[in-house]
Design a protein around this nucleic acid. Structure first.
Lengths: 336, 336
DNA sequence: AGCGTCACCGAAAACCGTTTCGGAAGGTTT
DNA sequence: AAACCTTCCGAAACGGTTTTCGGTGACGCT
């Protein structure tokens, strides 16, 4: 009466060969599609391999060709809702290329990051993806690392490193252009923490788009915090001027704005259009009316990071910062 | 002018030994703190190791002792906000025990799950944690797996398997007991999709707690969907009866209820108390007033799953389903 | 029949970096 | 001189896979 020990030994190539009545060498060739095996033998081997659900030992392979087929993913905070779509995009791309992801969360701690770095290098990952916590640049992991590194969300401070980042300037531009296209002209801007590059970049893009159309923002960019509460409390000041649209620095802020407008009897989108950033489903799901939002395409960012990592491994990535273009998701709040 | 190719070959123990002028064997002992090395030699070896930033190859080590120090984490949907805290809890526990996490997302697809299973086994993980998508039981991964498995969130249908699940019945009970303790007596219940065990379990626990105090629920359990919209639209029916508290199946539903009550001028918590489940920060952050909620302690679940996996590896886990007790986070909406 | 060619297969080596085992050199104690 | 430490080294083992290379039998050609 033991604990039902997970005893079953792993199936090896030798087991397959034995059961198929061939040598290990032949079994290997059959499975790897090498030429010098008769069709009949190959079929038999493959049959047995299937039946035993044989999986070649990745470690043994790694020893031979020097590639482990694993990549390290170093994130700064899993909690943040930005890491997740990036991670999914990357996992997707790697899954297709038969690489596996070793996940490490440094919790924003540089010491922990270094520690995770050495374990990952000890496991001989083929590459690393580093996911930052803000869009502000961060110092590179280290010099002369034995594997390629791609920074994402936050670029490396070294412009020669490979980085994939969201394009917040264009995001701001797209938001304004959408509002202009739907006939708005008097556009105000409420955003989050001014110390975040994401906030100022979006504002810069928005202003640029306005300027190109010979318009000016209504009022200052009202920086505050990334919260619904800030969105709500900003509305009083906003309505002191004549506005027909509000660009909100995040979906959370937008939701606060929507709430406050609703309480004051301001109709959306009839009187005022509202647009947010991030296209964060759970936040948007509850908005009334449904919120138009700029999707930063984080999942695509993750995929691009993975693709560039592959390219780096083959020595054909030029390095440098690459931006991912966001897209607008039109819903009711802008009168779509 | 090459791309600063991360060409630097990985540093091996042999390199260190050579440069330190000792044999590989001695270098190994020096680095691993074995006794039979003179202090002088040890210092020299460690110096060189440091200078070359030598990192021992974990794969080679794995060959010797048979343990890779990696565990597979198979999740059904990363998007779901439940996987994440579980993952964090597990990553935490593993990080402390020097194990690394190989992450796979099966996207709710059984085929993909099997595929990921084979790759993980091919990488010779020391164990597996499977994170389900609902709290309903799920079929085990397979028979006679060569490594221990711990199921979490969703238990395995085989009661002998090791499972760690949230205790939704107790969660419902705790919610009601909190309301009773703050003086409420006429308690209604709005919940999500009736096909989710999480919904019916919570309701069962809530009803049980009421019964123990000689009370009955006001009206039926109003099952619907896990959305704010459902929370809002349920309020009309709720207010047809005299209620002084509403148990909501999730924070989202609770938020919808709060919104609708606010629109109708019903004061919270003065007239009606509201309580939710999951303690989902981003949803709660925007609630007015701040929402009291039952935290299912997912992070603890993840940690327990990791701990039981360790125990299994040493053959000292008895198997069976373990529940994690939730806790109430008191905020304004229940007049705390 | 004898020979060469060809397709197929198997035994054994190579492979990787680490740890460990047995032993050896040299000095010290008994 | 024997016994014993200390300190180090060479070589084996580890565990699977892939690869090399020589062998075997069938077959065609003269």
């Amino acid at each position: 009466m033991t604990t039902d020990a997970p005893g079953r030994r792993q199936v090896t190539l030798r087991d397959v060969a034995q059961l198929a009545g061939v040598s290990v060498a032949t079994a290997s060739k059959a499975i790897n599609g090498k030429a010098e095996v008769s069709a009949e033998t190959r079929r038999r081997v493959l049959d047995v391999a299937e039946r035993l659900s044989f999986t070649p030992n990745a470690l043994a392979r790694a020893m031979l060709d020097g590639h482990t087929g694993t990549v390290g993913l170093l994130t700064h905070d899993l909690e943040g809702r930005f890491s997740l779509p990036i991670l999914m995009g990357a996992e997707d791309a790697f899954g297709a290329g038969r690489s596996s992801v070793l996940l490490c969360d440094s919790r924003g701690d540089a010491i922990r990051e270094q520690h995770h770095l050495s374990t990952l290098l000890g496991r001989r990952v083929d590459g690393l993806i580093v996911v930052g916590s803000q869009t502000d640049a961060r110092p590179p992991l280290g010099r002369d690392l034995p594997v390629p590194v791609v920074y994402t969300y936050a670029p490396s401070t070294d412009p020669a490193d490979a980085s994939v980042v969201p394009d917040n300037v264009t995001a701001g531009r797209i938001a304004v252009e959408h509002l202009l296209a739907t006939g708005r002209r008097r556009i105000a801007h409420v955003s989050g923490d001014v110390t975040y590059a994401a906030a100022t970049d979006r504002a810069a893009g928005a202003d640029a788009a306005l300027a190109e159309h010979g318009l000016e923002r209504v009022g200052p960019v009202r920086y505050g915090s990334w919260s619904e509460a800030w969105g709500r409390s900003s509305v009083a000041a906003l309505l002191e001027q004549d506005v027909d649209a509000v660009v909100c620095g995040s979906d959370q802020i937008a939701r606060g704005v929507l709430d406050a407008l609703h309480d004051r009897g301001v109709r959306v989108p009839d009187d005022v259009a509202v647009i947010g950033f991030d296209n964060w489903e759970p936040m948007i799901a509850g908005c009334r009316p449904a919120l138009t939002s700029i999707d930063m395409n984080f999942q695509i960012m993750g995929r691009r990071a993975a693709e560039r990592l592959f390219a780096s491994q083959e020595g054909r990535d030029p390095g440098g910062v690459e931006t991912v273009t966001p897209r607008v998701i039109v819903r009711e709040s802008t009168g779509g």
